[in-house]
Amino acid sequence: MLLDITGSDLIRACSAIGAGLAVIAGIGPGVGQGIAAGHGASAVGRNPGAQGQIMSTMLLGQAVAETTGLYGLVVALLLLFVHPLD
């Protein structure tokens, strides 16, 4: 029988889909980190002497920008592994 689906099966299927949708949050940090890296590269091009400082500032900013994407990851992991209704 094709439609032999219980309620908890449905919940699991929907949370898998939701987890997939949640990690779309990774787009934002990707764009943001790319912009930071591009500006870092142009800053090094303008002032090669300050490469170390530019690098550390860029990595710090990128790591902070990464946070929103990681929130998406946390939501996805919660959806996959925490099943309060089972």
Binding site: A63, V64, E66, T67, L70, Y71, L73, V74, L77
Partner: peptide, 16 residues
């Protein structure tokens, strides 16, 4: 909250 979640999620993603 954001400080702790940032560190936690980064390390957890590596572990996973």
């Amino acid at each position: 909250i954001s400080l702790s979640l940032r560190l936690f999620a980064n390390v957890l993603s590596g572990t996973v």
